[in-house]
Design a protein around this nucleic acid. Structure first.
Length: 575
RNA sequence: GACCCCUUCGUCUAGCCAGGUCCAGGACGUCAGGUUUUCAUCCUGAAAACACGGGUUCGAAUCCCGUAGGGGUCGCCA
């Protein structure tokens, strides 16, 4: 490896993020977008969002929209591309920028022109080889320890007569690009100089056969669009490194200027495996199998009934024949397994803050030097530099992201937290929000702000609040320890407390807190001896916000009902 | 297997390019104490790494070579 030749970024700087809309925005993709965005912002350049939907069979409008929304949510704005403000961002009319359209599916004619240019120059040719033939060739090459490279001789030597005969027979064919027979060196801003020898590079497909959709391949469309849109720096994941010599050759053959390249390391799971959307399905599948084996009464039919999806679909999923995400999500919820967060949308749904995700993601592969770790987008746009991008892959540490998120929430003003929590609940917990009308929500937010490490955590922590009084169950350990121990001293406290609380005129957190505190003092008890039994009576567990807050949240009526009910249900068995 | 990239605490990393100030610093996690009505916090402290082997040098985490290990690519996916 040679020294990366940095510090000489192209001018003007035009970067882009070019996702393929075949699924949700992955955190790795988000980081790539963030780096491109930061660079463009820093240098007063342009940042383009282009949708690479050359694979018509796998691209979906939902995925496109999802990616757009996730980027916007992260605070990554783009200068050109589909516009979320428009009536229909998917339509050519709903895009901003002068070099559109920004969907490759809407740029088909351009690719044909360039294809013709290559054909005329003798740099593109038809290849009639079938996938099976190709596969056999590759297997053979591998067995011989040779590079898996398609031998172009056969296709190149096809006579015009043979070609017309094949076409008359309706045999599908592709166009391949004739690679130069020289070594190709790429100057990468992160990795330095990378050279691939000519014999390692095969003539790759640039135009698909009609039975595969017939359009340009990623390589071809990508190169042409980068040039057409004036992209001067291509920063992307390192999995593209081996594509770069091909792209370089394509730029050269087309007479287009090569952009600068920068390949960033990949992001992995904590166990070192590649972080992929499939991990979600995998986690659920493992849990499902375990559940099915745990009890002979457990069956896929039972699961199907629970989540309302066909048994056959579940069986196929469990057997690993599909990674159906919709099903995985439903199944995960029903089985109570935590589906790992992989996509930006997962982190959003689980209550992570966009600026925190950006901060953490930026740090995964880059750092400003010294001991600085916490920063916002503006800082990133100011300080980001390619020189400081790491060269080795990183593992995604959820604990650290979690702590960043917790600290950020803790540090924010209450009003901000309340508004964010409200927005989160409106979107992801509407059933809970419905039970927190009026100033009750304020009370709730105030009680949970200090113990909210994600915006979603309060929903989990306050389950006791959202269920009916007569549905409350009591944690057995808590009952034994807090109510029954020492000859039922907890129950005794409850009895006396009931009277004291009934007499309470004001049902506000502060006055309730004071009342309980006064009660403890009067009875010569520590606060714990009083608050804990009360907590168990109110929530069924030993965990809740401050006791004043907990009482206030429940409201006078419900709190007193629960107090009575607990005494009735948890009365110590005599003997 | 072929080609390409990478290698500092469990994890993310600073330090490396301009060798000594590094018996290696920070963060998350872990462990031990302490504060607190539970939880969540908060405070104090601790354990924890230069992959290995050669070389260059007065001196190497830092430079060179090799080995091992990890990863990526090898699709009419992107």
């Amino acid at each position: 490896m040679n020294e990366p030749s940095c510090n000489n970024l192209p001018e003007p700087l035009v970067t882009r993020f070019a996702p393929s809309p075949t699924g949700a925005l992955h955190v790795g993709g988000a980081r790539t977008a963030l780096y491109n965005w930061a660079l463009a912002r820093q240098r007063g350049g342009r940042f383009i969002l282009r949708i690479e939907d050359t694979d018509v069979r796998r691209s979906t409008p939902e995925a496109t929209l999802g990616i757009l929304r996730d980027l916007a949510w992260l605070g990554i704005d783009w200068d050109e591309g589909p516009s979320l403000e428009s009536a229909d961002p998917l339509d050519a009319a709903g895009q901003r920028g002068e070099r559109g359209p920004y969907f490759q599916s809407q740029r088909q004619m351009r690719y044909r022109e360039y294809l013709q240019q290559l054909i005329d120059a003798g740099r593109a040719y038809k290849c009639f080889k079938t996938p099976a033939e190709l596969d056999a060739d590759r297997k053979r090459a591998r067995a011989e320890g040779q590079p898996e490279k398609d031998d172009a001789t056969e296709s190149l030597n096809l006579s015009p007569e043979q070609i017309s005969r094949y076409q008359a027979e309706g045999r599908p064919y592709v166009y391949r690009f004739r690679m130069p027979d020289t070594d190709i060196t790429v100057h990468d801003l992160v990795l330095g100089e990378v050279t691939i020898r000519a014999e390692e590079l095969e003539d790759f497909v640039i135009f698909k056969s009609s039975d595969a959709g017939g359009g340009p391949t990623f390589h071809f469309a990508n190169v042409i669009d980068d040039a057409a849109m004036g992209v001067t720096l291509t920063l992307r994941a390192q999995e593209h490194l081996m594509n770069t010599p091909r792209h370089a050759a394509l730029f050269d053959a087309l007479g287009l200027d090569r952009p600068a390249w920068a390949h960033v390391p990949l992001i992995f799971n904590p166990d070192g495996s590649k972080m992929s959307k499939r991990d979600k399905a995998k986690a659920v599948r493992t849990a499902a199998k375990k559940w099915l084996e745990a009890d002979s009464a457990n069956s896929t039919a039972a699961l199907a009934a629970q989540i309302g999806l066909p048994t056959a679909r579940i069986e196929a999923f469990v057997r690993g024949e599909s990674d159906d995400l919709e099903l995985a999500t439903a199944l995960g919820e029903s089985l109570g397994v935590k589906v790992p967060e992989i996509d930006v949308a997962d982190f959003r749904a689980n209550g992570y803050l966009p600026e925190v995700l950006c901060n953490y993601l930026a740090l995964l592969g880059w750092n400003p030097g010294g001991d600085v770790e916490r920063f916002d987008r503006a800082f990133l746009a100011e300080k980001f530099s390619i020189e400081r991008i790491g060269r080795s892959s990183a593992r995604f540490d959820r604990d650290k992201l979690f702590r960043f998120n917790a600290d950020t929430i803790a540090a924010m003003p209450f009003e901000q937290y309340r508004d964010l929590l409200h927005a989160h609940f409106r979107m992801y917990r509407p059933e809970f929000l419905a039970k927190l009308e009026g100033d009750r929500f304020d009370l709730f937010a105030r009680a949970y702000h200090p113990r909210s490490r994600t915006l979603d955590e309060p929903a989990e922590l306050a389950r006791y609040l959202f269920i009916e009084d007569d549905q409350l169950t009591y944690d057995a350990k808590a009952v034994t320890k807090v109510l029954h121990k020492n000859e039922g001293e907890g129950l005794k406290v409850l009895r006396e407390l009931e009277q004291a609380l009934t007499a309470c005129e004001s049902w506000m957190p502060e006055s309730l807190e004071a009342a309980v505190s006064a009660f403890a003092k009067d009875h010569g008890l520590g606060m714990g001896k009083v608050a804990q039994p009360l907590r168990v009576a109110l929530t069924g567990t030993t965990v809740s916000p401050g006791i004043g807050d907990t009482l206030a949240l429940l409201g006078r009526e419900r709190a007193l009902v629960r107090l009575q009910r607990c005494q009735a249900q948890c009365a110590q068995a005599v003997g």
